[in-house]
Each structure stands twice: as structure tokens, then as C-alpha cells.
Design a protein around this nucleic acid. Structure first.
Lengths: 338, 338
DNA sequence: TTGTACGCGTTATCAA
DNA sequence: TTGATAACGCGTACAA
């Protein structure tokens, strides 16, 4: 059983409140006594119990970061930027893996609901969730959403315009002279995926290309799914000139399948991925991708949350960032050839 | 301000203790009153304050998992297996990114030190750390180490015999008829890396090959470092027949550099990596790697910690698991050629 | 079965 | 400048 403030007080021969003031650098303690107390604190390596502190102060200085999938190679960048801002402001960050499981997500949201953390940043995942909304409204919990949208727009949100990202990707392929473009996407019950579908369609429309439903494969977001998607398309007998895969992993699987089939990228098929991660850059050939401003995304989210904790609402409830396209070798046969 | 137990008691017209018993399924409450109370709890969506609970019960049912580097593609597997065991036993898991930064690590260890979590699993990272040890001894905090060793052997530890892994990798290359084997490794102040160096040396010795210090490059564990390592070796004028890179990222960079130099794998250079992750399998060609039993590792660690929390010491303080080698195309020219 | 009262370890208020 | 004491929200002996 660790030492308590009371023990220290007894040892120093002063009252508990005096010790409390001393270790919290609060005024109202004589220079002499403060030194004496701090020395004892040091000597016994006393650490105040955070639970008790939190109970009394109603603050823990911990933020939770809820992530739907830890194997997403884009997340480390977001995480780091959030931690950076948090640490600068005296907050620790704990990560919570929700596995896209509503139950787990709810469990972790209870951390904020029940005062174990001061606030939470929820990244990605399924569409709108009543639970999150109720939480934010009823308990006025401090929440910030990243790349996720909630029905009513009352929770501060930072997101990347993924429809625009998909538009850029599709347009880029069209610019290469390709008109039959397959879309390999995740399930559209995820907000971001449905957005990408819209962007894809819009790019086709704007370029006078008719939508061919056969070219769209909707599946889960794994590498295996990407692999199977290619086989499925081949079986259907459709032969696109290019592919747009809406995630790193889908693209990775897709590329494997293409190569396994004996085809060349980009000579036989152009491929564009989504997400400028390690994965897309070590694939052979390096993938042209839609790149998101992940660091900016994370920093904005963290700042929003910290502002919220200080009672400040963000200027814009919903902040939309623009993705860009990063051209590499998987989509540009002509540039390489000449 | 959320409802408290007192509020519920007032609404139900009973004492606080009765409410407490009711929501905790403790005996000593009339069936009638229990129902009434639970209905009110439901209706008002009352959630007990975990800080107060923790303070009173000295338990939070949260475990911390400290990781040195989130971008390590092997970790998701470990994390999932730990979470699985934890959840089955009624614990939540929060992840803490220490970034291999002792300060941050210390900060997160304070979570257990100061009762915000019940225990912690510390994965990998630098060699022995006084702080961890003191924590475990003085505060008898519940700690378990994974792939990390602490000076005195008093903390339950699960680790993979990485010396053996390196031995297997080196031997495999030797079996391919290669005698000049370069070692691209991380800094040997990390326990696991120094172990790998030993395994490498042992394999050479056992096969009557003399150690050539020039073939060893020690660097940080990043992809860029792997890339530079190859260039450095070339500059030195040494021409190994094969490479053993001690991490996924090092291997990824190394492979890039080799290909960028116009060489073929495995025709010109054989490459063996460490870690059976997504990265090593999507590289072209797929990498022969040392594979660790990550799921087993995680589950054992989690069980150890939970046992510890229940007052049971593990049967073996140090449990060593064996890695295996997974042969793919990067190291077997002859198998492919014939 | 139910209620009272105290403890958990801190902070904050008010006197002294 | 200090010290006593009441919160904070919950669990739990003990008494009723």
C-alpha cells in the first residue's frame, strides 16, 4: 500500500492541506515548510493517487483516442500528431481499439462518460451512432470526431473530403486515357466509403463517361478482399483499364492478384490507391495514391478537443480538409515510357 | 453534471447503500426494491462514476498496454490477442504509445502506479530499466514484460528467443550456399537486437564461417535506415550474397535500395527479414522471414497479468517461445529456378 | 431486508 | 501562513 498524502503530512508534522498546497505549487505555504515538504515527498517518492485527484478535481488530464482498426497503416501518423498536441498541453493519450465493434466502442466511450478520461477523439468507423450523440448531448461529454459524421451536426468534427479524393483519383485515371475504371471499395455503410463512391460517380459524369455498375466491387476493407475483388471482376468478364481501390489494404491485395494473374502494372492495368502509407509506397510498383493531410487532421482534432475542455467551441463545427493526389508509377505508363 | 448514486437513492426513496447493492447484484435487497431501483437506473441512464468506484474498490478493470512504436506492423496481432484474453476476463485495454521515449514510458507507467489502471503489459523497447523494476518491487504494481528483459528477473516475462530466430535466418542463408551474409540490425542497446546479433554470430561459428565485422550495419530501425544500410555496404566495397535484416521496416528499405540499384532478388542477393507482417508479404518478392508466435505471446502475457492481479504468480517467471522460419521467394533462387 | 456511517485519497473552503 | 473539515461518488461493515 503506497503512501498517502496523510502519511506525508504526519511525517512532515503539518496538515494534509498544507502538503496538498505544497505539491501543487499553490500559494499560501511558507517557503520553509514548502521546501521541507517537497524534500520528504522526494525522499519517499510520493505520488498522489490520481483517482482521488480526479474525483476531487473532476479532471484526469487523459484523453482517449478511439480507433476502429489498428492495422490501418495511416493511423500512426494521426496518432502521433494528436499525441504531440496533447502532450504540449499537459494531457496524456490512451488509445482504444474498437475493432469497428459497436459494443467495444461503447465500452470505451464509457471511459469519458464515467470520468476516467476528460474527453475523447473518435476516428472513422461506421455511420452515425446514436450513442455518441446522446453522450455528447446528455452528459455534455467532450467529444471530437475525425473522419466520421454524426447525424445531427453538433459535435466538432474534422474530416477529409474523401469524395473529392475519389474524384481526383478517378479523374487522374481518366486523364491517362482510361475510361473503364473499376472501383474496389469498402462497405458503404461506412460514411467515408459512401462518400468515395459519390466522388467516383461524379468524376465519371463530369467526363461524360457512363456508369457501369459491373465495375464496382463493394467488399470488406481487407487485403484478401482486394485480391478476391480482382478475380471476381475477371470472372464477370469485365476488363477495366484502371482500378481505384479505396484503401491501402484493398490496393495491396488487388495488386497481388493482378501480378499473380501475370499482368503488368501500369502497362496492363493502372492502379490508384487511397492513403499515402508505408504500404502503398513499398508495393511494386509504388502506388499512385490519394494522400490525406493526416498530421493536420490530427492536430486540428486535438486542438478542438482541448479547446472544448477549456470551454471554447471551435469556430467551425465541421472542418473539411482537402486531399491531394500523389502520382507514382502505378498509374503512369506514358510518363515512364517516354 | 451527471446523476450520482445519491440522486438515484433519493428518487427511489431508499438508501444509497441499497442502490449500490442493487446495481452490483449483491445479495441483501428485496426483489421488489431491486426491480424498482434497476428500472430507475435504466430510465435515467445512470452510470456509476468509475473514479469513485476505483477509489473505493481499488480496482478499475483496465489494463494498460505500453508499446514502443505503433508503426510496427507486428503489433496489431499482439494487441488483438491481448485484448481478447482481457475482454474475456472483464478487463478493458488501453494502448499507450511510448515512442521509445523513457519519459513517456514513465508517464504511462504512472497510470498503474497511481491506480488509474490495474496493471500493465510492457512490450519491447530499450534494455533494462530501473524505473520499471522499482515500480514492480516498491509499489508491488502488477506488471508483465513482453519481448523485453529486466535486470533482475522478478517480473513475469514472455519473450521470443530472437537469438534463435536470427540463428535460423542466418543458417537458412548458409543453407542456400551463401557464406557472405550481411546483417542489417537495429541498435544493440535494445535487448532483442543484441540477441539477434548473438544468434547471427553463433550460426556463422557453427558453420565454420569467420565473422566479418564489415558486413554488420547497426542503425535505427526505420525503412530509410534500411535503404541507407545497403548503400553504405556498397560504398565499403563489400558484396555479400545475402542479407538478414532484423525488422520489417529495415528489410523494406533494404529491398528498395537493392532494386533501385538494379539488382534482382533473389538472383543477385538473397534477403531474409524478421517478422511475418503485412509488410514483408506484400514486398516484391515476398520475403522469407523469421516468424514469431505473436498470438501466443500476447495471450500468455495477458493471462500472466490477470493471474497476477488475482494473486497468482506464473509458473515460470520467464517464458521463452520459439520462432520459426517462413520461406518465401526472397531467399530461394534454386527452388524457383528449377 | 434496509439504513447509517465511515473510509478510499485528494482538493477546497473557511477559520484560526 | 496554517489547520481542521467538508466535499467528491461510491462500497461496505455494522446496526437496526
Amino acid at each position: 500500500m503506497p503512501l498517502t498524502l496523510k502519511d506525508i503530512a504526519k511525517i512532515a508534522g503539518v496538515a494534509e492541506s498544507t502538503v496538498s498546497r505544497a505539491i501543487n505549487n499553490k500559494p499560501g505555504v511558507g517557503e520553509e515548510t514548502r521546501k521541507k515538504i517537497l524534500k520528504i515527498v522526494e525522499e519517499y517518492n510520493f505520488q498522489p493517487n490520481k483517482l482521488a485527484q480526479g474525483l476531487a478535481k473532476k479532471q484526469t488530464h487523459i484523453l482517449a483516442l478511439l480507433l476502429p482498426d489498428l492495422s490501418n497503416p495511416n493511423y500512426p501518423t494521426i496518432i502521433k500528431s494528436i499525441e504531440e498536441v496533447a502532450n504540449e498541453n499537459g494531457y496524456q493519450v490512451v488509445l482504444c481499439n474498437t475493432d469497428n465493434n459497436p459494443e467495444k466502442e461503447k465500452g470505451y466511450l464509457e471511459l469519458v462518460e464515467r470520468n476516467q478520461v476528460d474527453g475523447a477523439i473518435v476516428v472513422g468507423g461506421e455511420l452515425a451512432d446514436r450513442h455518441i450523440l446522446n453522450l455528447a448531448l446528455n452528459k455534455n461529454a467532450s467529444l471530437v470526431l475525425v473522419n466520421r459524421l454524426c447525424e445531427e451536426l453538433t459535435i466538432p468534427t474534422v474530416l477529409v473530403d474523401s469524395a473529392r479524393g475519389a474524384y481526383l483519383a478517378t479523374e487522374h485515371l481518366i486523364d491517362q486515357g482510361i475510361s473503364e475504371i473499376a472501383l474496389i471499395m469498402g462497405l458503404d455503410r461506412e460514411f467515408l466509403e459512401s462518400e468515395k463512391l459519390e466522388g467516383y460517380k461524379q468524376a465519371l459524369t463530369d467526363n461524360g463517361i457512363e456508369l457501369n455498375e459491373k465495375l464496382i466491387v463493394q467488399t470488406e476493407g481487407s487485403r484478401e478482399a482486394g485480391y478476391r475483388a480482382f478475380l471476381e471482376l475477371m470472372k464477370k468478364g469485365v476488363t477495366p483499364g484502371g482500378f481505384f481501390a479505396t484503401s491501402d489494404l484493398l490496393a495491396a491485395g488487388l495488386v497481388e492478384a493482378i501480378k499473380m494473374g501475370g499482368y503488368l502494372i501500369p502497362e496492363d492495368f493502372s492502379v490508384v490507391g487511397y492513403g499515402d502509407s508505408l504500404v502503398s509506397s513499398i508495393i511494386t510498383p509504388p502506388l499512385t495514391v490519394v494522400a490525406e493531410p493526416l498530421t493536420r487532421l490530427g492536430k486540428l482534432a486535438a486542438r478542438n478537443l482541448i479547446n472544448l475542455l477549456n470551454g471554447k467551441q471551435p469556430a467551425e463545427i465541421i472542418k473539411v480538409l482537402n486531399p491531394s493526389i500523389k502520382v507514382r508509377n502505378s498509374s503512369t505508363p506514358h510518363i515512364k515510357d517516354k
